[in-house]
Design a protein around this nucleic acid. Structure first.
Lengths: 215, 215
DNA sequence: TAGATTGTTAATCGATTAACAATC
DNA sequence: TAGATTGTTAATCGATTAACAATC
């Protein structure tokens, strides 16, 4: 019984975390969990957990709690982990390599179908189970494969033009690792930014702020 | 005139973004900016920008706006970009390499003083301007150098024990790239997580959600 | 039935936005 | 002085928490 109406971004950003913790419980063989137990593990209030889960439907049983496997699957479906959206990765530097090899796109809603780089030394070499293609072949590739998302691992300077090109080819969803902000560029694009610099500076602030306090 | 009292986390997480945009303006030679102009560029409301900046002091001039360079410096100071906190990076895989080479720790409040890995093939090789050390030498190194932050780029399975070890050595600030959640482990630690999986799944949700809507 | 825990509504809290007086 | 834009207060909005009836 999907209720789903105007789910707020704060709830959405908590979903992967629920999924992660439930997956862990599942692997440990735990079959049942209450909002109170999840609360202790995850650091959200029990109230919030019940509220969050209830946005999508009544997954629990009163007096009992939630069945771990069932809840995990439900959240997986909500997130769309089996969607297999075709995506491409651009920029096979260290970061691109790390992402292509260490992340499991397949179990998280995507299918990595192409990796592109402009460096002739890299083109033709293998990364994960894909051969790195020349960035020159990008347009043709997109016409044929029609990927819907692009992972941007190119330097800041290259992103501005690249994202325009991709957008023109019909790719409107971006996972952006560059330090350049494309959030405001397109009115109908979905951009998920990973701003490592921002994260690092936030950490710096929090460390300083703490040391300036008595406790 | 620093006001600073109980700055909320939402304001703090916006600070690096202000810093980034102001730095850009500075580089472009723009000397003056109003909250309205910043609003158009950054996507926050002008009201929020004024509110945010005012948590830390009156940096603007009524009727004129903000002096870009001055404001940028102020925010840099607030973030503590010149603090130079000593930090170490553990795990010199692709991700660790990307972080060590592509991020400018120095200009963002930190100083990377050591890189550690357990792989004998990697130990002794150079990364950036540091030589990768054997993880066995970690304890001695920490006693001497007393780093205050650790960047965790090791696999999920290794993090649990590693973070305990580091915590015992007195490192209470973590930049955590592993898929393992250490946020709840220590009551007095500051943890900044970069959960790439969560980000990817959120993107997946947003793509699915959009396609299920008429517009 | 008694105990437990959800689903859901109401109360609280905090963050964002609007408005405007202060002032450059 | 008139125009502009901040600093700051008040109003609104939304998110979190508390409470409790429903029910397993």
């Amino acid at each position: 019984m999907p209720k789903r109406e105007n789910i707020s971004m704060s709830v959405i950003r908590r979903l992967p975390r629920y999924y992660r913790f439930l997956n862990d419980l599942k692997k440990k063989g735990v079959t049942r969990v209450s909002s109170k137990e999840l609360s202790a593990k995850m650091g959200f209030t029990a109230s919030q957990i019940r509220q969050d889960l209830n946005c999508f439907g009544g997954f629990g049983q009163q007096g009992y709690g939630y069945i771990v496997e069932q809840l995990c699957n439900e959240i997986g479906n909500i997130l769309g982990v089996a969607n297999g959206y075709k995506c491409i990765l651009i920029g096979a530097g260290n970061l691109g390599q790390a992402i292509a090899t260490h992340l499991s796109f397949e179990t998280q809603g995507f299918q990595l179908v192409g990796i592109f780089d402009s460096n002739p030394r890299k083109v033709g070499t293998t990364l994960g189970n894909l051969v790195i293609s020349d960035i020159q072949t990008l347009e043709e590739f997109c016409r044929e494969q029609k990927p819907v998302m692009a992972v941007l691992c190119v330097p800041r300077a290259a992103v501005e033009r690249l994202s325009d090109k991709l957008y023109a080819m019909g790719i409107k969803n971006f996972w952006n690792f560059s330090h350049y902000d494309i959030t405001m560029k397109y009115h109908d694009a979905i951009v998920e930014n990973v701003h490592l610099n921002d994260s690092l500076m936030t950490l710096c602030y929090r460390i300083s702020d703490q040391s300036s306090r008595p406790d």
